[in-house]
């Protein structure tokens, strides 16, 4: 129990440290955000007035604390450029990104785990070699190029899928799912590679264990043995899978750009090109938080599945 509490606290600690680093970075830049917003020809008085109105003339620590206090209450502040409420921007874009990540995650698991188990069971046979080729290609082909090639093949060539854009659920399940297919595949392939290799190596280790040999000698059925093997081999796979879920948010931003999906990437890149720094800080913080939660779940699942590590 204390271990879990400790892990939760350390994740929170990292999040606080991350937010301090982000805030410091913003204020370490010699150019005032006011200058960025108002443009190069704004007068000194305008700058001073803007800074006073937005509280930018206060000491950095005070600004940080007032912003952090707002975050606790779910108030992330307003954009300095167009005054939109940042929490609203995030609540509109996060579900889209989350859905993309979830589809890719399920796709990756459904393909990777059986592929890894099969290649461990048939070491050095054709399925093992195939899995190795898939894994090498998966970690090597950049998601965004894969996305472009899938558009060229599935949308322009065959015409089965839309070339981009986001069709909401309300427009019907089929068009919605079709619009999510190519992005999910491009985001998922890398993780098929990672998770299948982990499964292959973990199942391979367990297959060499004594208890498997004993079970075979006792004449247990293959299916029964497979269950025992999976139960023992699964904990590193679950850890990698849960961590992958966190990492997917990063690549989802790139995939969203390829398929022009209105998720977090649109909010973040708009903010970057407009130097809307408060939006950047909050979006990065939200995605880092997602990542830390995924890591925390990975860690807790690992302890739960493999009690030996808790000691």
């Amino acid at each position: 129990m204390f271990v879990i509490l400790g892990r939760v606290l350390s994740s929170l600690g990292v999040l606080v440290a991350v937010s301090i680093v982000l805030f410091t970075l913003v204020h370490a830049i010699p150019v005032s955000p006011a200058r960025v917003v108002l443009g190069g020809d704004a007068s000194e008085e305008d700058i001073a007035e803007f800074e006073r109105d937005n509280g930018l003339d206060r000491p950095v620590i005070v600004q940080y604390l007032s912003w952090a206090g707002g975050v606790m209450k779910g108030d992330l502040g307003r954009s300095l450029i167009d005054n939109t409420v940042i929490a609203v921007t995030i609540s509109q874009t996060l579900p889209v990104t989350l859905e993309l990540v979830l589809w890719s995650f399920c796709l990756a698991l459904v393909i990777a785990v059986p592929l890894g188990v099969l290649s461990a069971y048939h070491e050095d046979r054709w399925i093992d070699h195939l899995a190795r080729v898939v894994a090498t290609l998966g970690v090597s082909i950049p998601t965004f190029w894969l996305g472009l090639m899938l558009i060229a093949w599935g949308a322009v060539g065959l015409g089965w899928f839309p070339a981009g854009g986001y069709v909401p659920w309300s427009a019907g399940a089929k068009p919605h799912l079709l619009s999510m297919t190519l992005p999910s595949v491009s985001l998922g392939l890398y993780y098929v590679a990672i998770i299948s290799r982990m499964t292959r190596s973990s199942v391979g280790d367990v297959l060499m264990a004594d208890h498997v040999r004993v079970s075979r000698a006792m004449g247990l059925s293959r299916g029964r043995i497979l269950i025992y093997v999976l139960r023992n081999a699964l904990s590193p796979v679950v850890t990698v899978a849960a961590m992958s879920f966190g990492y997917m948010f990063g690549w989802a931003l790139i995939v969203e750009q390829v398929f022009t999906i209105p998720g977090m990437s649109r909010a973040l890149l708009n903010a970057i090109f407009r130097r809307d720094y408060l939006v950047i800080v909050n979006v990065v913080l939200v995605i880092t938080a997602m990542f830390l939660v995924a890591n925390l779940i990975a860690d807790l699942l690992y302890r739960w599945l493999d009690p030996r590590t808790a000691r």
């Binding site: 994740s11 991350v18 948010f249 990063g250 970057i272 990065v284 880092t288 830390l292």
Partner: peptide
């Protein structure tokens, strides 16, 4: 515990 790609962005 810092995600690389997000932070590069």
């Amino acid at each position: 515990s810092i995600p690389l790609l997000i932070w590069a962005i």
